[in-house]
Amino acid sequence: MVETSIDIANYVELDRLQGRYVAALNRNDMTAWMKLFSAKPEASYVCTTREHVDEGLPLALMLDDNRNRIEDRVMYITKIWTGTFQNYRTRHIVQRISAEQDERGHYRVLSNFIVMFTNDQVGTASVLTVGEYVDVVERDDAGEFKFLSKTAILDTSVLPHYSVYPI
């Protein structure tokens, strides 16, 4: 990959996109979450573990490898699972590590994350997971940055709680 440095304005825009992503998940707003992904059919969201990446295992915790699956995930959460699970809220703490532009003009962004979660009924907070985002960001036809792909790689190989929402 040919990498080129990017200017400060694009850093700001990339951080703003990540901020909107964090805000959507912290509010459990799945519609807002979905809108941050590219409208292209190949848009993807994958949540896997470091264990799988290191061992070359293809299975994931969430494998939405096309736009339809991303939209189906929102439907699971808002129309199918609602009322069954005990709700919880998260705080995603994200730290950008690097951002580079490839020869196609896409931005490849690496970030660390820590996700704390608080069960609405229990009231105490715990670490849900920690890990790394590997993002590919494109500028859409309207000129806005969107995730063409977002891969959350969890250092945590065992989740301490079932997961409803994406990471």
Binding site: C47, L61, M62, L63, D64, R69, Y76, I80, W81, T84, F85, Q86, L159, Y162, S163, V164
Partner: peptide
């Protein structure tokens, strides 16, 4: 995406 702790069907079992 179907039958694990985040699966379309089995997340409800987990809950």
């Amino acid at each position: 995406n179907l039958l694990g702790p985040v699966g379309l069907i089995s997340m409800e079992d987990a809950a």
